[in-house]
Design a protein around this nucleic acid. Structure first.
Lengths: 138, 138
DNA sequence: TTTAATGCAAAGCGTTTGCACTGCT
DNA sequence: AGCAGTGCAAACGCTTTGCATTAAA
């Protein structure tokens, strides 16, 4: 379900985005791209503690910020928590919060339609949507 | 444009919601209902400093929390700022952030339509939407 | 007089920053 | 050697909390 990216390709993406591919950055990038599911900085740190000991919390935050600025990942501030979540999905999309599991599920952009009147009145540059609820049993 | 409510009616609403109508609570409630435009706690405090000297910041926060819990006002955590904003509009609605002025504009609920497929897959209990952009010159 | 509300300062939480150190290039 | 990257701890901004004081039923 998540892309398994080789270290080589991760390095390539970092370089293409003008980000020096240090070991720490590769590790964080890899985690967000391949392992994490909308992780918080805390979750990234926890993973690093296991697989990349000694990385400092400051470096986790700094690295995430760099990756976001380079548009390699995205960050979301969602209303259900005060923690920023990071997302490997850089396309415009929305989120559904499953209240049973606490997990975020990506929703395609076209699942939300704006009333066309809105576009007459406003020039809209960003659309943030969070839906909350539960999954229907299939 | 905003309802001008009498002190008497404000007290009535507080009591109806089971909230003791102290002077501080009436003042905060009045400000959010009649004067403020999506104020932050900071804005409430600034107004109090002028019109209700000596109210502590803690009481501002506590009072806002009480009013929210009593469903007399709503709070929103929006992604463009870390400050919570308070809203006298307790109906379900969305927001547009005018990037020119920084002001929030309420949008009616029906300005956003969810793809009906979503409702088949998910039981949706809350819908949070923030649009950003600029107003078109009329 | 007994309970609730308030004010103050300190603590809390997630995140950022300053600065010394490390390690590439 | 030079400089970007890192680690640590302290600082930050917003909000909450503990507790002593005040006011209200």
């Amino acid at each position: 379900m998540k892309a398994k990216l080789t270290t080589k390709s991760l390095i390539g993406r970092l370089e293409a985005a003008g980000v020096q591919p240090t070991a720490q950055r590769i590790a964080v990038f890899q985690y967000v791209m391949c392992e994490g599911d909308h992780p918080t900085a805390e979750a990234v740190k926890a993973w690093m503690d296991e697989y990349f000991p000694k990385m400092s919390l400051a470096t986790v935050y700094n690295t995430l910020r760099i990756l976001v600025k380079a548009k390699l990942i995205r960050e979301f501030k969602l209303p259900h928590t005060d923690k920023v979540v990071y997302d490997c999905n850089i396309k415009e999309h929305h989120h559904f919060l499953d209240e049973d599991t606490g997990k975020l599920i990506d929703l395609d952009s076209e699942t939300i339609k704006l009333n066309p009147r809105l576009k007459r009145k406003y020039r809209i540059t960003e659309t943030h949507v969070l839906l909350r609820g539960t999954r229907r049993s299939e």
